[in-house]
Computed example of a mutant assay.
Amino acid sequence: MKAEVDSATEITELKSKLDLMHRDIKRMMENSNKEYLDLMLKNLKKDFLNCITAHISEDIENSLERGMVEKCQMRETCKSKFTELLERNADLIKQDKVPETQVTESKGELNNLRAEAPFNKCDVCFLEVTDVFEKQLKLMRSLHIYNGPEEIKMDISDISEDILVRDVFEPLSNRQRLQIMKAVAVETKTFTSLSQLTGLRGGNLIFHIQKLLDSNMIIQRHERGDYMITEKGYKILKTVSQIGCMFEDAPEPETLKA
Results as ranks from 00 to 15, higher is better:
residue 58 E to I: 03
residue 196 Q to C: 07
residue 105 E to S: 14
residue 115 A to G: 10
residue 192 T to S: 12
residue 244 G to Q: 08
residue 68 M to F: 13
residue 248 E to C: 03
residue 82 F to N: 04
residue 217 M to V: 03
residue 245 C to D: 11
residue 195 S to N: 03
residue 195 S to V: 10
residue 184 V to S: 04
residue 233 G to P: 06
residue 62 N to Q: 10
residue 1 M to T: 10
residue 100 E to K: 13
residue 48 F to H: 11
residue 72 C to F: 10
residue 14 L to T: 04
residue 224 R to G: 02
residue 156 I to M: 11
residue 256 L to G: 09
residue 160 S to V: 05
residue 153 K to W: 07
residue 16 S to L: 11
residue 15 K to S: 00
residue 81 K to E: 08
residue 183 A to E: 15
residue 102 Q to R: 03
residue 178 L to H: 10
residue 247 F to I: 14
residue 20 L to C: 01
residue 233 G to H: 00
residue 41 L to C: 01
residue 157 S to K: 15
residue 194 L to C: 09
residue 60 I to S: 11
residue 258 A to F: 09
residue 21 M to L: 15
residue 195 S to P: 00
residue 233 G to T: 03
residue 13 E to I: 06
residue 194 L to G: 06
residue 42 K to S: 13
residue 119 F to I: 05
residue 179 Q to E: 03
residue 86 L to M: 06
residue 252 E to R: 10
residue 95 Q to Y: 07
residue 133 F to C: 02
residue 172 L to N: 12
residue 62 N to F: 10
residue 110 L to W: 04
residue 225 G to I: 12
residue 61 E to W: 03
residue 148 G to N: 08
residue 46 K to A: 13
residue 128 E to F: 04
residue 211 K to C: 10
residue 34 K to Y: 07
residue 35 E to N: 06
residue 240 V to N: 02
residue 117 A to I: 07
residue 16 S to P: 00
residue 209 I to T: 12
residue 236 I to P: 04
residue 51 C to G: 14
residue 156 I to V: 15
residue 163 I to T: 11
residue 184 V to I: 10
residue 153 K to Q: 06
residue 234 Y to S: 14
residue 239 T to K: 04
residue 99 P to Q: 01
residue 38 D to T: 06
residue 34 K to Q: 07
residue 144 H to E: 15
residue 110 L to G: 06
residue 149 P to I: 13
residue 106 S to I: 10
residue 215 S to H: 05
residue 155 D to N: 14
residue 47 D to G: 03
residue 62 N to S: 14
residue 213 L to Y: 07
residue 96 D to L: 10
residue 125 C to T: 02
residue 191 F to W: 09
residue 132 V to N: 01
residue 121 K to Q: 14
residue 125 C to V: 09
residue 212 L to T: 09
residue 219 I to F: 15
residue 22 H to L: 05
residue 93 I to A: 06
residue 120 N to M: 02
residue 83 T to R: 01
residue 92 L to D: 01
residue 211 K to L: 05
residue 90 A to W: 02
residue 243 I to Y: 14
residue 16 S to I: 04
residue 75 R to L: 13
residue 235 K to H: 13
residue 30 E to C: 03
residue 228 M to W: 00
residue 125 C to H: 09
residue 54 A to K: 12
residue 48 F to M: 15
residue 112 N to A: 15
residue 199 G to H: 06
residue 185 A to W: 02
